[in-house]
């Protein structure tokens, strides 16, 4: 057996196994989105710490020079920057609300109890309150995003 064939024979999916929710249930999509947004939020927070710490002192204080200030401000204060911020609002609210759903679910509190199965069968854990809460997380994220759009593109509120 060649080494390449040996790897293929092992057949463990690796990253593609959890990144691809296609053919699976709604919770699997939420799972993938939760993990991807988690990484995205971490990347954003690191970048955000960088750019906000840059402003400490301001253009007239002991901080960055006026040209640097203008350059960094220019990265955020435009339509593209605002779109990124709106995306951040979307994923942060979803990630937070869905995270609360997961914490409560993983305590086994909103999944229902084991029970004798009846056909046509649908798993109890996948038709319990937790599934409704995924929709609640999506709704909250969309409402928050709408609000962010109004603030960033709709003038002052």
């Amino acid at each position: 057996m060649s080494s390449g064939a040996e790897g293929k024979a092992k057949n463990r999916r690796g990253l593609s196994g959890w990144l691809n929710p296609y053919h699976y249930n709604f919770e699997r999509w939420a799972y993938v989105f939760q993990r991807v947004t988690g990484v995205a939020i971490l990347a954003y927070v690191i970048g955000h710490l960088g750019d906000t710490s840059f402003f400490v002192g301001g253009p007239t204080g002991t901080g960055p020079s006026e040209s640097s200030w203008t350059f960094i401000s220019g990265l955020v204060e435009n339509s593209f920057g605002h779109l990124i911020l709106i995306l951040v609002v979307l994923v942060v609210i979803f990630h937070g609300a869905n995270g609360i759903r997961l914490i409560v679910s993983e305590l086994g509190l909103i999944l229902g109890r084991p029970s004798p199965i009846e056909y046509p069968y649908r798993p109890k854990s996948l038709r319990s309150v937790q599934r409704v809460l995924i929709w609640v997380a999506i709704a909250l994220a969309l409402v928050g995003t709408g609000w962010a759009v109004l603030i960033l593109f709709g003038g002052s509120i």
Binding site: Y24, R28, L102, S105, E106, L111, P114, P123, K124, L126
Partner: peptide, 25 residues
């Protein structure tokens, strides 16, 4: 992390995801 796919594909109605969360509980 409760992706729930195990329960979704189980042909016998076992609902493993429920069992695992109850263990955590």
């Amino acid at each position: 992390h409760f992706a729930g796919s195990c329960s979704y594909v189980c042909p016998k109605g076992v609902d493993p995801a429920l069992g695992i969360q109850l263990l955590k509980r």
